[in-house]
Design a binder for these strands. Sequence first.
DNA 1: ATAAAGTAGTTTATAAAATAAACCAAATTT
DNA 2: AAATTTGGTTTATTTTATAAACTACTTTAT
Lengths: 94, 94
Amino acid sequence: MLKTLDPLLHSELRLGVMSILLGVEEADFVFLRQETGATAGNLSVQIDKLQKAGYIAVKKTFRGKMPCTLCRITEQGAKAFEKYVEALRSYIER
Amino acid sequence: MLKTLDPLLHSELRLGVMSILLGVEEADFVFLRQETGATAGNLSVQIDKLQKAGYIAVKKTFRGKMPCTLCRITEQGAKAFEKYVEALRSYIER
DNA sequence: ATAAAGTAGTTTATAAAATAAACCAAATTT
DNA sequence: AAATTTGGTTTATTTTATAAACTACTTTAT
């Protein structure tokens, strides 16, 4: 029986967001949108799920007068990502 | 913008089936069921999708008097898997 | 011989997920 | 000051995954 893949990470957009966040201190909504190519609605929903799972932390601020949603990965999120990659390897390396 | 992940392969059960089939000449329904732990209904549906995509070939035979569904990966399937793994790396290796 | 239980699946219904479309509030441009 | 753009959220729709119910047999027990 194969290792089970965390369904929260096994989603192209959420995985993309996590992947980006692992490489930076923090990233805002607009940047994530550009990098992933996702629609705003979709990104908003998926960010919410990752936050509720405790995989990312979201801070709502302003840049000048414009709203700005900052995201950063949490310790828990980084660990979950590690585990996910480990599980994936059992599928793609054999 | 990140590489896009073939949605046909980005499914835990279908990926599992492909992963198993890559390692063997062919495998029957019962074996795939045991290895993946999937329900028969779910496996049946996912095998169908992989077949319709041309990623696996399915041959219905009998073992003794019992029906036996044999699956094997196709050239196209193996290539698609390769590409999927390649795309995945852009998410998990950075 | 026949009823009960098991095997190997398929089909259909339901739940969950992804995605898009519509909307909102504030800022900027014309 | 109207129209447009920005940075989102909420709601609706489509797609996907999964499970439950069913079919067609076979094997076992009575």
